[in-house]
Lab assay of single mutants.
Amino acid sequence: MASQGTKRSYEQMETDGERQNATEIRASVGKMIDGIGRFYIQMCTELKLSDYEGRLIQNSLTIERMVLSAFDERRNKYLEEHPSAGKDPKKTGGPIYKRVDRKWMRELVLYDKEEIRRIWRQANNGDDATAGLTHMMIWHSNLNDTTYQRTRALVRTGMDPRMCSLMQGSTLPRRSGAAGAAVKGVGTMVMELIRMIKRGINDRNFWRGENGRKTRSAYERMCNILKGKFQTAAQRAMMDQVRESRNPGNAEIEDLIFLARSALILRGSVAHKSCLPACVYGPAVASGYDFEKEGYSLVGIDPFKLLQNSQVYSLIRPNENPAHKSQLVWMACNSAAFEDLRVLSFIRGTKVSPRGKLSTRGVQIASNENMDAMESSTLELRSRYWAIRTRSGGNTNQQRASAGQISVQPAFSVQRNLPFDKPTIMAAFTGNTEGRTSDMRAEIIRMMEGAKPEEMSFQGRGVFELSDERAANPIVPSFDMSNEGSYFFGDNAEEYDN
């Protein structure tokens, strides 16, 4: 993207840094990872977990959730003011799984939030270390993106479920800051804005008074975040219109849905970061690795190297396929839920299948599930090659597409044709070009129609051997075009429920 120079890199967003050079960025990201790792080690000690239990991804998720809940100030305040039966607002906890007599047992633990905050700050040299908290939120978000298709949420806001490739980060909490905003897809931002506008339509006082002023500035800020994701002048001009509207209503909703559809071809720039579970960072720190000293990046080879040398386990339900569970977590670790499966298959070195073909449910185990038949197995999170994460949407291309997802959002900077089903997408653009945004709409449609099938995206960008740390010898991959490109292809993934 041309304006790259004016933006802070995501590592800076990730670490609240002012302008830093590459070495400083690597050190501050490393410091953040160190903090998460030290916190995780301490929690495993508190909970008396064995090494194996500490490497269980379900335990990692519970521990991450506990610290996120302990620092969720708004919710904590709300819980104190609106006490609900049987919930102690000062405590947080969740299921911890232990191996007892050759069987997995679930144990519900409860801790004072104050105590968890103390352990977290102690692991982070006394700081609140917001960057580390956001990092864990993005890992949870990436896992949700890989596990669930947001059909219901899309339909509720009037969008087409086939636009799911635009929904990265749709389950990120509001408090995820600049680093969170960077990884949100165009569809996620559109959905947040539509929800806001709908509230304004239904509630006369939404934009009024002292609160209304705050609401208005939040609305304009979200519009600017979305505008910054678009790469064409016409899309940005249309966002200006939406932002400046005196009284946002149905016309703005129409414009936003139009823009979301246009992003299936004229893709937005959305950041991709490899955020790993805390149970990967903990053992690495415990083994003596100093992330701050060595430096770390979320968008280069580092996460690949770390996963190459990590042992992570997962509980497996009786009829689940461990290899499929591994694929789910591998995609989440690489922030690749909406990437082209052919690119992923090449990088991973084994075939990556669409969601609907995987015999696996989510990673988390519900409290009512029976533990008797639970097994555990090693997650295979290694890769054959590594590639640089991208934040450009890439230019655009036609490809055989599917009944489910009709476009992709690249996660890796790797040369390819970008699949999208042009006739299906263009069919949504018939007729409606009147109104105050008509010239911009016409211009956007013209650009979409001009998108050429034979153009290559990320020209000359390749993948790298894991021994090639400096990215000196790019390998331009070859793809098996007979395979499906979309992950949520004609899909039956479970729906995400809060």
Rank of each mutant, 00 (worst) to 15 (best):
S3W: 13
K7T: 00
Y10N: 09
M13L: 03
E18Y: 12
Q20G: 00
G35V: 06
L47C: 12
L47M: 11
D51T: 15
I57C: 07
E64Q: 01
R65C: 05
R65Y: 02
V67Q: 10
S69R: 05
S69I: 07
E80M: 08
P83I: 07
K87N: 03
K90H: 13
K98S: 13
V100A: 15
M105C: 15
Y111W: 07
K113Y: 06
T130W: 10
G132M: 11
L143E: 02
L154S: 03
V155Y: 04
R156Y: 08
R156N: 03
D160M: 12
M163L: 12
C164D: 01
M167D: 05
G169H: 12
P173A: 14
G187S: 13
M191P: 03
G200C: 04
I201F: 04
E210Y: 01
E220Q: 14
R221F: 10
Q231E: 08
A237M: 13
P248Q: 12
A271H: 03
C275R: 05
P277T: 12
A278M: 12
A278L: 12
C279Y: 12
C279T: 09
G288C: 13
K293V: 04
G295K: 06
S297G: 09
P303L: 02
L306G: 03
V312S: 06
V312C: 14
Y313R: 08
N321D: 01
K325L: 01
K325I: 02
S326H: 11
W330H: 07
R342W: 06
V343N: 01
V343I: 15
T350K: 08
G356S: 08
K357R: 10
G362A: 09
S367L: 02
E375P: 03
S376A: 11
L381E: 07
T390Y: 00
S392T: 08
T396R: 15
A401H: 07
A411T: 13
F412G: 01
L418V: 15
P423T: 13
I425D: 07
F429I: 06
T430D: 00
T433V: 13
I444H: 01
I445P: 03
R446H: 05
M447E: 06
G450R: 03
E454L: 14
G462F: 09
S467C: 13
S467H: 13
S467P: 01
A472Q: 09
A472S: 09
N473T: 11
P474M: 10
F479R: 10
N483V: 01
D491Q: 03
N492C: 12
A493N: 14
